[in-house]
Structure formats: C-alpha cells, structure tokens
Amino acid sequence: MNSWLGGFESILKRMKTGNFDWFLHAMLFYHTQHVIQKQKQKQTPHQIDVNDVEEEEEEEEKDEERHWNVEE
C-alpha cells in the first residue's frame, strides 16, 4: 500500500492542499472500488498465500487455443 501510494509523491508534492486532498481521495476511492470489484469477480475469496499466487500464474499461461470446428 505504502509503496503504491509513494509512487504518487512526485505528482503530489507540487500540488496545493485542495488539489492534493481531492487527488489522494479520488485515488484511494478508486483503489477501494477496484479491490471490491476484483473480490466480487473472484467469487471465492480466500487467504492469499504464495501457493495460490503460483497457481494463478500457471492458469494465466494456459491460454486456450481456439479453432474453427471444421473437418477437412
């Protein structure tokens, strides 16, 4: 969280208080919406551990190859 938020430092440090407040609030709001939406998409929320992450990566690699259903 902190490292992600820290990425905005170069943008935020030049802002006045009004813009700073709105920008940060909008980003955190968007982030929260994003996380909740991802949880809904997953449907089966579970504890994140290293094994799960590895499984997800493996699943991503299995991109199904599709073809026309033709007999020639």
Binding site: F23, H25, L28, F29, I36
Partner: peptide
C-alpha cells in the same frame, strides 16, 4: 481549483471512503 476544493468538502467525507 475551486471545484476540487468544493468537491472534496462535499464528497470527500473528511477522508472516509464510503464503499469501504
């Protein structure tokens, strides 16, 4: 600039994120 300030005072909810 005034719009961002006013928007935060109305929608900002003093930093509390509503969906959370």
């Amino acid at each position: 600039e005034e719009v961002t300030g006013e928007a935060f005072s109305i929608l900002g909810n003093t930093g509390i994120i509503e969906p959370a």
